[in-house]
Design a protein around this nucleic acid. Structure first.
Lengths: 371, 371
DNA sequence: GTGAAAGCGCTAACAG
DNA sequence: CTGTTAGCGCTTTCAC
């Protein structure tokens, strides 16, 4: 006797007191189906389906009767059945490929994830999370991600190492939005912050304060984030007429320590300002500057990039001038873009750029000047 | 003409060159089904199903033939169809109810999530993430979470505010494991770290160093974490014979600032040691102590709780003696417990306790003593 | 060992 | 407006 049959019998036995059924492990307390609701409301399965899916063509009195039964029974349609029949799961995946940086140690991804979760909640979508730590993880999980009937679409984090996965995903013909500008110029949907434009803004700001020797601290050379922020720096410098000094440019990893070590090196070039491509880099740079007996912003002005909320573990003593990027909103917009692609097709590819803004605080020196 | 029919026709047209089909938007490139594979391999659908599901009763030669076709076509079974037929989705949900603390600002949840994701990867489960920011979110998302056919089971974070959701979930009869000891003593499955035991250990350590006036900094009174860590403190104090001094106990929020402010207050009671119920609290306490011109550990010894990796944004200058809790492993174990409950039934409820360990570094003073 | 057949619970075309 | 009917693609008896 199949479970299904047992369930049916239990349904027939509906009139019996519950105690008769809970004798042994009756987890089989029949899950309600559309058909059950239909019977109770004296209508057909389709009508119940229409009511559940808020379709207009139902007489008000009938709708109310059905709604009452649904309310009373606490019925919810089975997700798998609905997905199978409609070919829509209302679930999207967030894929973090290996090497996009530790998910936990950087506050960026948690905030991004929070934004994406919020976007899903707002649109009644479910979020599937795939954190892939290694190539092995990627290979093992790929079938689950690309399999039909699970995800309507996918959000993938860009990053030099992740791009292999991105190509596989795009080839698998699943609606897909890349988070950040992907390295390879394949024609894909992506969303990014205006890295180049705002970097130029940051450097222009330093320039306007009379700085002549502006250093730049970059993240890994292979990332588009680094490349774009560097481009903005180059834009500003070349527009200013100041000759480019390659010795003022240095690449490292996006961390406090990276910033500290790089700044130590670049101090020999006697910069009067630093544009750090991330706040972590900026904090490290400030530590190096101070250790040298110099002060910020008097001797060297500093501007960062990110403006993420600091964790409750640390006291924020430094008020960094930086580029604010709205990570939470970025996540929400990413979800919206993906849903648009799912519903309206993926071609032609669409790119969304999210605005950033320069937040002037204490480390660039312009506040002091104003006094 | 339904999409299904179009697909079927396209399948029939399989021999035609692709260019004929890609004329306009043919996203309908037929997804393969078991039936297609069966036809290609010259067997029945059931046999293919058996092969896919690694069932033993298939002749080797047949198995190989089927496997070859699957390999060649890149076939993956449709997730929704499989879920509908088998009543198993191999997906679990991680639910973070409102008020469990900001998901992003604290490194705890990101690490926990990472651990859970890892546990899912290892067991070929998919992870659904539900971050609920408000009661409204909870109400709106609850049907999706509890609906059949989406999740096989659920991991819910405990917390004073979340317990309402927990009860609803338990009542909805879904396999469920609580992360942390829930406030209400309902008979549920949960996993927790040995808060009480290790807190006692921490305080015993301070006691063994000759401390007589040991203060305790706690988190919110309403959380089980605070309650259990307090119990451990009380255990140690009462076993030591030192009379309990209520003025050495203070509750605040789990943050650096909370620790700082509370320590400021408690300094008047002239403690010679502090047990902080979290590292953030400990860092704040140390700042307060130093501001008062006192030093750690010479004047006041400090022990924390958590030992989470610090973010790359901050330099870890303080080497805190603390209780290490293995958050990543905790996440993995939580997944394993949940899968066990899903597969073997939820009754009787099971509790898992994860071991912690005292990590002696510089702030308790025992290293100095050894020299 | 293998295939035929009966669902899983829902959506959606179609007829009325 | 509503009901009938035919699937969605898979698992799982049951018979051979």
């Amino acid at each position: 006797m199949t479970k299904a049959k047992i369930v049916r019998i239990i349904k027939i036995l509906g009139a019996l007191p519950v105690s008769c059924l809970t004798m042994h492990k009756v987890r089989l307390v029949a899950d309600l189906t559309l058909e059950d609701i239909a019977k109770k409301a004296g209508v057909s399965r389709s009508t119940v389906s229409r009511v559940v899916n808020r379709q207009p063509d139902v007489r008000d009195s009938v709708r109310e009767r059905v709604l009452a039964v649904i309310e009373e029974t606490g019925f919810h349609p089975n997700a798998a059945a609905r997905t199978l029949a409609s070919q829509r799961s209302f679930t999207i995946g967030l894929v973090l490929p290996k090497g996009v940086g530790a998910f936990f140690s950087d506050p960026y991804f948690p905030i991004l994830t929070q934004g994406i979760a919020q976007g899903c909640n707002q649109n009644d979508f479910t979020l599937g999370l795939f954190i892939l730590d290694s190539s092995e993880d990627e290979d093992r999980t790929f079938p689950r991600i690309s399999r039909k009937g699970l995800l309507d679409g996918i959000l993938v984090q860009a990053g030099s190492n992740g791009d292999g996965l991105i190509e596989r995903l795009v080839r698998a013909d699943i609606p897909c939005v890349i988070l950040g500008r992907p390295m390879n110029p394949v024609d894909v949907n992506y969303i990014d912050v205006e890295n180049r434009k705002s970097s130029r803004l940051a450097v222009d700001h330093l320039l306007s304060l009379g700085k002549k020797r502006i250093a730049i601290l970059l993240g890994p050379v292979l990332s588009t984030v680094s490349m774009d922020r560097k481009s903005g720096y180059l834009d500003a410098i070349s527009a200013s007429g100041i000759p480019l000094d390659e010795s003022l440019m240095i690449s490292t990893e996006f961390s406090e320590t990276g910033g500290y070590l790089s700044m130590k090196k670049i101090l020999a070039q006697q910069p009067d300002a630093v544009f750090a491509a991330s706040d972590a880099l900026a904090y490290g740079a400030i530590r190096a500057i101070r250790e040298e007996g110099l002060s910020v912003p008097e001797d060297i002005a500093v501007v960062g990039f990110d403006d993420l909320p600091v964790s409750p573990h640390t006291t924020k003593e430094i008020h960094l001038t930086t580029i604010h990027q709205p990570v939470l909103e970025f996540g929400i917009k990413a979800v919206e873009l993906l849903i648009d692609r799912i519903e309206n097709g993926c071609v032609p590819a669409k790119q969304v750029v999210v605005e950033t803004q320069l937040v002037v605080r204490d480390t660039c020196g312009s506040r002091i000047k104003e006094i």
